[in-house]
Amino acid sequence: MTTPTRSFADLRRLTPARVALGRSGVSLTTDALLDFTLAHARARDAVHAAFNADGLAAELAALGLAPLAAASQAANRRDYLARPDLGRRLDPAARAVLQQHGSAADLAIVVGDGLSPTAVTAQAAEVVRRLLPRLAAGGISVGPAVVASGARVALGDEIGTLLGARIVLVLIGERPGLSAPASLGAYVTLGPGPGRTDADRNCVSNIHAAGISPAEAAFKIAWLVREALSRGICGVALKDESGDGGAAPELPAP
């Protein structure tokens, strides 16, 4: 049997990656160059977009959570981008507020702007909306939600410690790509505290319109939280086997 011939056009229909762009002399074609320039501009805009913390807090409150505001030690976006370490440490005033809201809840949810506030605005509240019924079905209690400005992933370790949570979920804007400027990441860390590294976390990445849907992300996150709590392991020790049982069952969202 003759194998059907595949063209670069077939490949381009399967991926948003920049393949088979063609050329004009030794340069890209005008269309390819303009598409690249537009994608680069969208990525830059996503990084520097304003973070509507108040609007997000209102959305979380409408879902029945009790949102708290927090900020890192990055005083502005310039500091945030130039000094990643500042985004991993809480501002002293925020630390004092969070110390007053400790609870015995299993999970603390932190939503941070990260490197794409655009992604947080587009995806975060819907992921939480889809997630809450799954947590409730698993008997997992949820404490106050924290909306964090100037946040890096590790900021969740300090927040989770102050809130007394057994496990912390950080929803945060991922570094924009040239085909995905609004991608959200979800990081799950059991026993949050100083010294935790990325090896101690599980990540659900590429949550965006052309990637993992909020419903699928919520299913995976709930599975990771439940299994981390029951097994007492997280990160590289916990393999994501959430898909082994087939498609995620639908649950009614609040």
Rank of each mutant, 00 (worst) to 15 (best):
V142K: 03
R44A: 14
G245P: 01
A75E: 04
R196Q: 02
D91I: 10
G177K: 03
P67L: 07
L184M: 07
G64L: 08
G160A: 11
I140M: 08
T118A: 15
A20D: 14
A93S: 12
L68R: 08
A41N: 12
G138P: 00
A210P: 05
N202Y: 02
V142N: 03
V19S: 09
A215T: 13
W223H: 13
P192F: 06
D200W: 11
T189I: 10
A199W: 04
P16M: 11
A53H: 02
R175L: 08
L251T: 12
L65G: 06
G25R: 12
L184K: 07
D157I: 04
A215Q: 14
F219A: 15
L131Q: 08
E126G: 00
G150Q: 04
T189C: 12
A69F: 08
I233D: 00
A248W: 06
A165F: 03
D54L: 07
V146L: 03
S213V: 11
G177Y: 05
S230E: 15
S141R: 10
L132V: 05
G138N: 14
P254F: 14
A41L: 12
G112A: 11
V147D: 00
Y80S: 01
A20Q: 07
P4N: 04
A124N: 04
L190C: 02
G138S: 11
S149Y: 00
G143N: 06
S141K: 05
N206W: 07
L155I: 15
L131I: 07
S103M: 09
A58D: 13
D157C: 03
A180N: 11
S27N: 13
G139E: 02
V19L: 15
D200Q: 10
L81S: 09
P252K: 14
N52H: 13
L34G: 01
R130P: 01
V120I: 11
A46N: 08
A49N: 09
G102D: 10
C203S: 08
V204P: 05
T15I: 14
G245M: 07
A182W: 01
S27R: 15
A165N: 04
S27Q: 14
V127T: 07
G177A: 09
R175V: 08
P181L: 05
D45I: 08
V146I: 13
I221Y: 01
A39H: 10
G245S: 13
C203H: 04
D91W: 09
